[in-house]
Design a protein around this nucleic acid. Sequence first.
DNA 1: CCTAATGATTGTCA
DNA 2: TGACAATCATTAGG
Length: 421
Amino acid sequence: MDDQPRLMHSSHGVGMAGHPGLAQHMQDSTGGADGEGRKQDIGDILQQIMTITDQSLDEAQARKHALNCHRMKPALFNVLCEIKEKTVLSIRGAQEEEPPDAQLMRLDNMLLAEGVSGPEKGGGSAAAAAAAAAAGGGGSDNSTEHSDYRAKLSQIRQIYHTELEKYEQACNEFTTHVMNLLREQSRTRPISPKEIERMVNIIHRKFSTIQMQLKQSTCEAVMILRSRFLDARRKRRNFNKQATEFLNEYFYSHLSNPYPSEEAKEELAKKCSITVSQVSNWFGNKRIRYKKNIGKFQEEANMYAARTAVSATNVSTHGSQANSPSTPNSAGSAGSFNMNSGDLFMSVQSLNGDTYQGAQVGANVQSQVDTLRHVISQTGGYSESLAASQIYSPQGINVSPNLASSLFRCVRNCVLSRYYI
DNA sequence: CCTAATGATTGTCA
DNA sequence: TGACAATCATTAGG
């Protein structure tokens, strides 16, 4: 406490606690004749008061009692009252009510929003979810990070509440102690109930300052936790295998136009447990990387084409519709788009396609043949659809048109010959 | 430890 | 605003 709690005088003439007959004493003390003797007495009393702290507790109590019973005590009391009245003016100005603290309100709001000072647990998880949403994160270990965040937040919450309780308890104890002390002192010096009340206010203000520091530290802790959580989410995590497969499936089956609509993105996001923006990122990356080096992705493309063909065939053979098995739901549409609508995506490739590598083409063709063999053996022979699919069209191979055409024919013949055996 | 793969970010353009 | 291109930063495999 930097500013000593000074006793405040209430309005003039208010009775002092424990001293209803103060005026009487005052009049008694002013009319005396033996001034010298009284001065001596007062000097003694003051001396005793000054040395009271040097004495033991029992001694002090005894001395206090003796002072209370001293015949000059009322006179001393009056003097104290006079001094107090004189000092009141200089003190009064310092006792203004503080306006509601904006910073405290901010802290309170934040603690409430973060679920630290809220009514019940669960606010923490909401905040965690909000943080996750803000980070745009998803992913497989989503829940573990959430629980980690929740655990840390509830730890903070617990510490906060424990400390708060401690402070409140200490504040109450101290207030009671001071009030008792003042009541006790009011027997020897003039203290009004209002002054006691003011003293209590001062104590409460001091404790609320401490509370604010606690709130501030808690807020800081939450912010640090939150930023760490968000940073962790911002870290790159590879998508799980299944998610990548879903994305690749879509990409290669829509190779002619690998630009999923918003709805398609949402559906993919749902299937892959990632966000729509992550889907967009993935397609953005995929398109550009595919375009940059088609050869590298050829095998992957073949694999997914084969896979979709297989699944399409399975669907068509097991399903009730037996009309057109050559048009698998996604691959088929892409294929037909490719053939009819001039394949914008791939035509871009043809224009700036400078990645021709002879050996690579050989490998590509070989891998295509292998894939097709595999597909045929799986499907029990179904080649027309595959021959028409964009993967095996001349445009689908990143070579000069003539070479591509001949290779394409070669592959198709190979396939057809196998089929017709 | 090096390197390729890959998800995310940023700046630019139509 | 979405796509693209370049780049960053992290992960994973040898």
